[in-house]
């Protein structure tokens, strides 16, 4: 989806701000959100792609302003509500009992009805065996698809319709574009593709820059030019 999460190449965010003291968690609630996710609070709605897509779908202002664990909280709540484990009203009522104000911005924007989809992985990890022969080899010149999608994808907008070279192959992996939606793990070959800075950013590109992306086979076609 063309969401706020797809940040590569966006301009105007200013200097990277580093902290002098860098605690793992900046407040107790961040550690609780982290732990909630890792103990599987999203229930059967849990696979990594579904979680990433749940985060992508949170309210975009919240995405930019609630911080990393605020984004995780929004994604977690989205998964919990869409799985039918809790409903938004019950969470809000409890939050107000605990001191929340009705006007507080809520990151989660779940679908109106629980989806009842079982997103559980078929086995641990994301590497999968794949029967299909890889279409591309190291050295092949490829071009990425030049269109977005309403759903989850791992082809960033800045690399759409761009020409690059395959520099390594990684075998078969769970395909995020279907797995995020509960439409199957659908393993695909994965490649590392190198793009020249000028191919991505045009004449304004910094010299001597190569950007590498790990891209699934359906994102790629052979480049004839």
């Amino acid at each position: 989806m063309d969401g706020i999460h797809d940040l590569g190449g966006k301009q105007g965010f200013g200097t990277v701000v580093r902290e002098t003291d860098e605690p793992v968690f900046h407040a107790r609630w961040e550690s609780r959100v982290f732990g909630l996710n890792l103990v599987g609070a999203g229930g059967s709605a849990r696979n990594i792609d579904h979680f990433r897509h749940a985060v992508e779908r949170i309210e975009p202002i919240a995405y930019l302003t609630h911080g990393y664990y605020g984004r995780w909280l929004g994604g977690l709540e989205t998964m919990i509500v869409e799985a039918g484990i809790l409903d938004t009203g019950a969470i809000t009522r409890r939050a107000i009992e605990l001191g929340a104000r009705p006007e507080d911005r809520i990151a989660s924007q779940p679908a109106l009805r629980p989806d009842r989809i079982d997103y559980r992985p078929s086995e641990s990890g994301n590497r999968r065996s794949i029967a299909a022969v890889a279409r591309f080899r190291i050295g092949d010149v490829v071009r990425t698809l030049d269109r977005g999608t309403h759903g989850h994808t791992r082809l960033p907008a800045y690399a759409r319709g761009r020409r690059g070279a395959v520099i390594s192959t990684h075998g078969g992996w769970v395909y995020p574009d279907t797995n995020a939606h509960g439409r199957g793990e659908n393993p695909q070959h994965l490649y590392t593709v190198a793009f020249d800075g000028a191919e991505l950013w045009g004449a304004d590109a910094e010299p001597g820059v190569v950007v590498h992306l790990d891209l699934f086979e359906p994102y790629l076609e052979r480049s004839d030019d």
Binding site: A41, I80, A95, R101
Partner: peptide, 28 residues
């Protein structure tokens, strides 16, 4: 607000018996 909402979700899930605070403590 995020801290409060996280606490709301955690407490509701614990009451439903779906998670335990100790399991979260261990991961953290």
């Amino acid at each position: 607000p995020a801290a409060i909402r996280a606490e709301a979700i955690e407490s509701l899930l614990i009451e439903k018996g779906l998670i335990t605070a100790a399991a979260i403590d261990e991961v953290v």
